[in-house]
Design a protein around this nucleic acid. Structure first.
Lengths: 324, 324
DNA sequence: CAGCCCCTTGACAACGTTGTCCACCCCTCC
DNA sequence: GGAGGGGTGGACAACGTTGTCAAGGGGCTG
């Protein structure tokens, strides 16, 4: 900028004014400055600007894994809103490790992001206290913060969706419905299990619950265990997209009644079509990002807790009757 | 930092030394400083650090769309390498718009990213000249830069893969093979078309080529057009994952011989399993990122042009014989 | 005991930008 | 013709950090 100023024969500040479109510069001077800028290929140093102004126009996003379609969709929606507001997105995947989540958040904070959207992996977020006190708005998405922290949160109706899934299967005559899902340490898994259990009421049987990792081997083993029971399940409820896919693969085209949590591409093309309880990841991302920007604009109301509805999409797999 | 210094009763520089783990600080002093840091909840201001040191420890990534599984996979791999090197990732989706691509790159440059990985949307990258001259390393992935720019590039063997697909279909008796793919303005589409055409040789018939957007409606219309020909195709070659999915959906479980470019989840569970030419997006991301960091470490050899092999995975759909 | 060296610490400038404040010029109006 | 005012332009400090250089103090050696 100094070079531009001397090249254009003006003061530093005048260049700054032109670059920022501030008023009070003679058109001819501005033109001379712009020419110098083009000639020298100058581009403003954002770091210095940030240092001086205190705002980075950067938002941090911590998700579990970009390669998971759910989070990729959420990510894209957040990105769109962020760009719309003239900001940039720093993002990172925690890989479901609390330590990594914290590292990412702290690195983002060291870079003085203006706001954070976090899909937490851990359940202790006291480390955020300082940042929150410093005024950085934080929005939790998909999962709530750990105990003792009350901040904006956008969740899906996990329990309600699980209930819908179970009810739907029961409508089609099923009474023995198994649940395959994540460790209940993960909020969404716990909530879906809760909804499943509540809807089943007296029919609940904990032997029908499987909470092992969604790897092909463990899912295959768990299905073998379930079907070997004296009173085996006639239907399956899978707790998220990964379990649904792993289960379908383990079933190897065997026709078993099934509802999965999370929609996925091609669910309609399988035979039978896979009935799912669908969330809308883009919607969740958009809502979270917009809430964040509302905070950045100064909205200081009490923390909001938004619950997005989910939707049962019948496609055939849930409508298979139980074997006689 | 100033506050920490006065709280600990030391000079600014001593705090800086402790924060950066520089040697030459008495353990007791360091401990006192650390205590003050904890008590005040201090966290280093990266912007100031960047301003002073000139390196941002940030890499910029421009892709087409995070929500596309191919780019999500690539993104994740890049992120992993970047984090491993102690850097952060700024990423943005161009949405296949050259203007947006340029905006993203320029914004990243204004933030003084240390390096860039770009999946280009446009074919004019002269705007990068200045940045390259300034020494910022840039790696192009998935698609090469526009004319007149020779920089590191990581591509897949698009033409070769298309050739493999066609050859495989011909082995199973097909002679009339249609191609559904993107606008050939997109490098990968053009290359795949080239490979398809070369492999077909004299059998090539341009009426069997469709290059309309991969929306459900246009794909349905194009399939109708193709099958209404006097001499309709007996097999389909789809130019990327989106076309494959759109085509399968438009076919509505009609069994037509098909090979798709790009692997996708559940391809094996459809009936018949979908044979594909698979790329490895993680591999591409990893290779591109590692090449970038090699440049950052000072490797200044001539620009590299890496071509990653692709792999035909037969699953059944390509092995359907032509109707008699 | 003097001299030297190492260990530890501190003062200061600089990175590139922007906000504040002031100076100048020319025009208009009294 | 002088005073006031709007429109321009510039000088300077400050943002928070780090690299450079130098100073003080204590132990070791001759």
């Amino acid at each position: 900028m100094k070079d531009v100023a001397s090249a254009a024969g003006v003061a530093l500040k005048t260049v700054s004014r032109v670059v920022n479109g501030e008023p009070g510069v003679h058109p001819a001077t501005a033109e001379r400055v712009r020419t110098a800028i083009d000639r020298l290929g100058y581009s403003r140093n954002e770091s210095a600007r940030v240092l001086r102004r205190g705002r980075t126009a950067t938002i941090g996003l911590v998700i579990e894994d970009v390669a998971d379609p759910f989070y990729a969709g959420l990510s894209r929606a957040v990105e769109d809103v962020v760009i719309q507001h003239g900001c940039l997105l720093l993002s990172g995947s925690s890989g479901e490790e609390p330590g990594r989540e914290r590292e990412l958040v702290e690195t983002f904070c060291a870079r003085r992001v203006d706001g954070l959207i976090v899909v937490p992996a851990g359940d202790d977020h006291t480390y955020l206290r300082g940042e929150l006190a410093a005024g950085t708005p934080v929005v939790f998405a998909d999962r709530p913060p750990g105990a003792g922290l009350d901040v904006d949160t956008v969740l899906a109706d996990n329990a309600g969706g699980a209930g819908q899934a179970v009810r739907h299967l029961m409508t089609h005559g099923h009474r023995r419905i198994a649940f395959l899902g994540d460790d209940p340490a993960i909020f969404t898994a716990a909530e879906r299990l809760r909804g499943y259990r509540a809807e089943l009421g007296g029919l609940f049987d904990e032997r029908l619950v499987s909470m092992r990792p969604p790897s092909p081997e463990t899912v295959r083993a768990e299905l073998a265990r379930l079907f070997a029971l004296d009173d085996p399940p006639t239907a399956l409820f899978t707790g998220n997209g990964r379990y649904t896919v792993a289960t379908l693969r383990a079933l190897a085209r065997r026709r078993v009644a099934l509802v999965g949590f999370d929609d996925f591409e091609l669910a309609d093309l399988l035979d039978p079509g896979v009935s799912v309880v669908a969330q809308d990841p883009s919607w969740m991302g958009r809502v979270a990002a917009e809430l964040l920007f509302r905070r950045l604009r100064g909205d200081s109301g009490p923390p909001q807790h938004i619950e997005l509805p989910v939707r049962l999409i019948p496609r055939g797999s849930a409508e298979l009757p139980p074997p006689p």
